[in-house]
């Protein structure tokens, strides 16, 4: 248990040390690259802003991610169970995913003018549902027929087969995708916060740091975002342990 915490913490400390060393050896000024030792003062100075704006970013990201889970799973079920739907939807989904989401920010901020929270959540959702849809779809469509047959031969309904077999069997793939989506959703939130500034979220704080030439603040925002990303990632890991812990095997 101690090792489980100590190893990642040591890795982070080593990373910060290397960063500090790099800035120190090159004698970079703050506007080129802030060093880790510049960050605590920046956090301290703006601590209230970090808390309120960090919260704004976090809740909107989580809301977008929850939407992605609901819609991603629904789309995954459709393409997982129907070959026709799969053929029809895959090109659309892949095409949509290939569009750089930054280009969509002006589009949605024009459609839903002034609805900042909604826009931000929508973007977090749009950028993060794809991995979930694809992996749920693959999980369901690759279910070995024998698994279905053991219940189908007893006259079980499709719903029962889904609930007792297909759903739990897909959970490991689902959580794998959710880990990717959780970090993607932050990118979506911040795209809106930075490209379409409305004074909310860590993206807005980053923007104001840029405007004021406050480089340590900008780096501090990046670190805060990384911290939130790690937080959400581990929240997903905990859920995975609870619901799909059976899939983990002891390393031999």
């Amino acid at each position: 248990m101690l090792r489980k915490i100590a190893v990642p913490v040591l890795a982070i400390v080593a990373f910060l040390g290397l960063w500090e060393l790099l800035v120190w050896v090159n004698d970079w000024p703050n506007y080129k690259m802030a060093s880790p030792s510049d960050l605590p003062p920046a956090f301290w100075r703006y601590k209230e802003l970090f808390l309120t704006m960090g919260w704004q970013t976090l809740w909107r990201t989580v809301a977008g991610l929850l939407l992605a889970v609901v819609f991603g799973t629904a789309i995954g079920m459709i393409i997982g169970f129907s070959k026709i739907a799969r053929d029809a939807l895959y090109p659309l989904l892949v095409g949509f995913n290939a569009i750089p989401k930054a280009t969509l920010v002006p589009v949605i901020s024009l459609i839903f003018i002034g609805q900042h929270d909604f826009n931000t959540i929508l973007m977090a959702f749009m950028i993060s549902f794809f991995p979930i849809a694809v992996s749920v779809g693959i999980g369901l469509s690759t279910l070995e027929p024998e698994y279905r047959d053991i219940l189908r031969a007893l006259g079980a309904s499709r719903l029962t087969i889904f609930r007792k077999i297909a759903l739990p069997k897909t959970l490991p793939e689902f959580f794998g995708a959710l880990k990717v989506s959780a970090t993607l959703a932050f990118i979506g939130t911040n795209l809106v916060e930075i490209i379409s500034p409305h004074g909310r979220g860590l993206g807005a704080l980053f923007k104001s740091g840029e405007t004021n030439g406050d480089y340590p603040l900008m780096f501090a925002v990046l670190i805060a975002l990384a911290f939130l990303g790690i937080l959400l990632y581990y929240a997903v890991i905990i859920l995975e342990r609870i619901f799909a812990g059976w899939a983990e095997r002891e390393a031999s």
Partner: peptide, 17 residues
């Protein structure tokens, strides 16, 4: 399908969870 049938396959098809 009928409830009075049992099936076994080459793959034991046990549910891991």
């Amino acid at each position: 399908p009928r409830k009075t049938v049992g099936m076994a396959f080459q793959n034991p098809v046990l549910l891991e969870w």
